[in-house]
Structure formats: structure tokens, C-alpha cells
């Protein structure tokens, strides 16, 4: 999975929608605690969700290879190859 949890594991409060702003501001060098205060994440259960999260899906997506065309195209290529072999 590797995406930010939609809700806090402990209390069930919504945290998912705050992730992108949190990530952006952390990367800009802001203090994590202050950003969390700003976002209104008060309880330590919710704070730990955002603080400890690693967006693994970003790394996984890098290795995704785009599927080659559709089936018909692929079959066409195979026929061409076969023809070449026959020659």
C-alpha cells in the first residue's frame, strides 16, 4: 500500500487530507511540530500517524513499466516477427 492512512489508527480522526500540505511544508524546512499545530492535529495519536508516515507508493510507481499498446498491436508485431522468421 504505502499511502498515507485516511484516518488515525487510534482515534479515527481524519488525517489523510492533511498529508500533502504537511509533506510540502516539511520539505521546505519547517518544524514538524509547528506544522502539525498549524494543521490542527492536536492529539499525539494523530500526530504520530503523519510524523512516522513514509509515502512508499512514490518509490513503487517509479518501477512501473507502461504496458505495451493493446492486444491487437502486440499480436500484429508477433505476426510481423513470424513472417520475418519464415523469410
Amino acid at each position: 500500500m504505502g499511502m498515507v492512512p485516511v484516518r488515525c489508527f487510534s482515534c479515527g480522526a481524519l488525517v489523510g487530507h492533511k498529508w500533502e500540505e504537511f509533506e510540502r511544508r516539511i520539505k521546505a524546512g519547517e518544524d514538524a511540530g509547528k506544522v502539525l499545530d498549524d494543521l490542527g492535529v492536536r492529539r499525539y495519536c494523530c500526530r504520530s500517524i503523519l510524523l512516522s508516515h513514509v509515502e512508499v507508493i512514490d518509490d513503487v510507481l517509479k518501477y512501473f513499466i507502461k504496458p505495451m499498446g493493446d492486444k491487437r498491436e502486440r499480436e500484429g508485431e508477433r505476426e510481423e516477427e513470424n513472417e520475418r522468421e519464415r523469410e
Binding site: M3, V4, V6, L14, G16, H17, W19, E20, I57, D58, L61, F64, K66, P67
Partner: peptide, 15 residues
């Protein structure tokens, strides 16, 4: 939906 900014999934090109 109560909040429209919740990320559900990320898609790579073509997904």
C-alpha cells in the same frame, strides 16, 4: 464526501 482532499490512490502513467 465530507472532505475532497483525501488521497485515495496514486496512479503511474497508463494505470
Amino acid at each position: 464526501v465530507v472532505n475532497g482532499d483525501i488521497p485515495i490512490v496514486k496512479l503511474a502513467q497508463g494505470q
